[in-house]
Amino acid sequence: MSTRAADRPESAERAPERTPNQDPAAPRLKSRHLLGIAGLDAEEITLILDTAEAMKEIGGRAIKKVPTLRGRTVVNLFFEPSTRTRTSFEIAEKRLSADTLSIATATSSVTKGETLVDTVRNLEAMSPDMIVMRHASSGAPELLARICRSAIINAGDGMHEHPTQALLDAFTIRAHKGRLAGLKVAIVGDLLHSRVFRSNVILLKTMGADVWACGPATLIPPGLERLGARSTTSVDEAVEGADVVMLLRIQHERMQGHYIPSLREYFALFGMTPERVRRAREDVIVMHPGPMNRGVEIDSAVADGPFSVILEQVSNGVAVRMAVLYLLSGWDGRNDEALVEGR
């Protein structure tokens, strides 16, 4: 086909045409929300990563902006502190020309006792097109997706999922390895409290990677095998021959009990040191979703070393979030029949 849809005449004489995006064979996202990696298939993940490749180029231009989401409003609603993710979403939104506003709960009426649903209903009354949200409760975005006309993008919910982090990790891995299938990926750290871990395991397994989960027995979540990951308490076994080593933060703030004897002991047993990295493949990449605890899960020599792609992950985050915002912007909740019928 050489007649691009943008180049079709607006004239009334033409036969009714499908809008530009309606090639039924073209890959597409099946949901109008992004609540988690669970539910995405390999084709949808590949579509997001491929679109992010195109978005990445925009970040390298002198004028880092395209007019795509002009006139669209995106609300960033963060009920938990975040610097990296919120900034990344804001930059992504601005590069696509969306109007954005960010609400941090410390300054919002949430502190006056308003419930989540009421807060969001009030925001919705002002007709935003998308809501990017982070919340301490697992499933909060899912709840909102049921009542909202706006598209909901999960920017991290409790211990459940953090889909855009897993997507940017996959994007970074693919940029270095050319593929995801068949790679040995060792994920070391606090697996139990980590939404990044859950999203990553689901994504990597969907794409055919071999995932090894490693941490103290107290921090390995039950039912890991159901996700298809192998688990071990030996960091040497996990890292041996790995293509990718991904470290996760020890989340003091989510720990109610004593999962590890001390941070110093954790570092001695699981901390990623240059000696441990040497067990991995020569072309290994070392990743960390941030924020890093140097000297706890990662040695500074590794964090700043030649295998580290930690800052690349951060820059790729913008491209991946642009891709997600773009791909979800084609839907309009006002026309969503399922929603009108109340599902």
Binding site: T19, N21, A26, L29, L47, T68, R72, G330, W331
Partner: peptide, 13 residues
């Protein structure tokens, strides 16, 4: 015409 008929998946970039 990208955002004029927002009723489905977006075209590939």
């Amino acid at each position: 015409d990208l955002m004029r008929h927002p009723v489905g998946p977006q075209p590939l970039v």
